[in-house]
Simulated scan of single mutants.
Amino acid sequence: MDQPTASGAAGDDGFKVARFAAPLRHGVVESIRTAIALGRFRAGERLPERTLCDLTGVSRTLVREALRQLESEGLVTVLPHRGPIVAGLTPEQAEGIYEVRCELEGLASLLFAQRADGAARVALHAALEGLKSASLATDPIAWLTAKTQFYDDLIAGSGNAAVGQSLHLLNCRITVLRATSLEAPGRAEQSIAELAALVEALMARDGVAAREAARHHVRMAASVAIANLRRSQEGAE
């Protein structure tokens, strides 16, 4: 199985924002977030407005609004005399975020097993198949889109919007770690196997097994991301 990698992006055209997106600002936010997740911009790197306008194909006003949104999420920091940069994370901060994410995704999975109706179960199974298909391509944007769809369906089936909102904020904060995770050899295949085990437990309505499968998936993702973060910081010293 070929693994989508951050370096495998087919140029910057994939970050252009569709004009029919509603609302358009949401599309700009998602495009910049994806660019960061794929390593187009790394932690500590400046985010020049003109570069972002060219990248997304939208106006400077929309880019500024998107940057304010990303700043409120903790993904972007605005420094005096430098402007907006991609916010960095220490290994300790990342560990704390993953600890909370572990519990929230476990809870979401438990609730899904207890509450999801037939339509939600069909949607999640289809999302897993979409993720498998995306892993066969070399387009990392397709992989991230499929992963987002999977979690959107998981949260929808859990029936708890507060869990989804909390997870969204946590995942925004660790977006900067996704590029190195995507580049980890074999991680895509491992991730799919972990999520397949989760879906199997969810389809069986086994809340206990589903919760543990979700927590295991997050722990594995954390181990890769934090190890890569430590290596990158050691290399920069």
Results as ranks from 00 to 15, higher is better:
Met1Leu: 14
Gln3Trp: 10
Gln3Val: 04
Gln3Glu: 15
Thr5Pro: 00
Ser7Cys: 01
Gly8Thr: 12
Asp13Thr: 01
Ala18Leu: 11
Phe20Cys: 02
Arg25Ser: 14
Ile32Gly: 02
Arg33Trp: 10
Arg33Ile: 00
Ala35Pro: 05
Ala37Met: 13
Arg40Pro: 02
Arg42His: 09
Gly44Asn: 11
Glu45Tyr: 04
Arg46Leu: 12
Arg46Pro: 12
Leu47Tyr: 07
Pro48Thr: 02
Pro48Lys: 02
Thr51His: 10
Leu52Asp: 06
Leu55Phe: 03
Arg60His: 08
Leu62Asn: 13
Glu65Asn: 07
Ala66Gly: 04
Leu67Thr: 06
Ser72Tyr: 00
Ser72Lys: 08
Ser72Glu: 13
Glu73Gln: 13
Val76Lys: 11
Leu79Ser: 10
Leu79Asp: 12
His81Asn: 11
Ile85Arg: 08
Ala87Tyr: 05
Leu89Trp: 09
Thr90Ile: 06
Glu95Asn: 12
Glu95Phe: 02
Gly96Pro: 07
Ile97Leu: 15
Tyr98Lys: 04
Tyr98Cys: 05
Glu99Gln: 12
Ala113Lys: 03
Gln114Tyr: 00
Asp117His: 08
Ala120Met: 00
Arg121His: 02
Val122Thr: 14
Ala126Ser: 15
Ala126Gly: 12
Gly130Ser: 06
Leu131Arg: 06
Lys132Leu: 06
Ser133Pro: 00
Ala134Met: 06
Ser135Tyr: 00
Leu136Val: 05
Thr138Tyr: 03
Asp139Gly: 06
Pro140Lys: 01
Pro140Cys: 08
Ala142Ser: 12
Trp143Glu: 07
Trp143Asp: 07
Leu154Gly: 04
Ala156Arg: 13
Ala156Lys: 09
Gly157Ile: 01
Ser158Phe: 01
Asn160Gln: 10
Ala162Leu: 11
Gln165Val: 05
Leu170Met: 10
Cys172Glu: 11
Cys172Thr: 01
Leu177Ser: 11
Leu177Asp: 12
Leu177Phe: 11
Arg178Trp: 09
Ala179Phe: 09
Ala179Met: 03
Thr180His: 13
Ser181Gly: 10
Glu183Asp: 15
Glu183Lys: 03
Arg187Leu: 09
Ile192Glu: 09
Leu195Pro: 00
Leu198His: 01
Ala201Pro: 03
Met203Asp: 14
Gly207Phe: 04
Val208Arg: 14
Ala214Lys: 02
His216Asn: 14
Ser223Gln: 15
Ser223Met: 12
Val224Tyr: 04
Ile226Gly: 09
Ala227Trp: 06
Asn228Arg: 15
Ser232Pro: 00
Ser232Ile: 05
Gly235Glu: 14
Glu237Met: 08
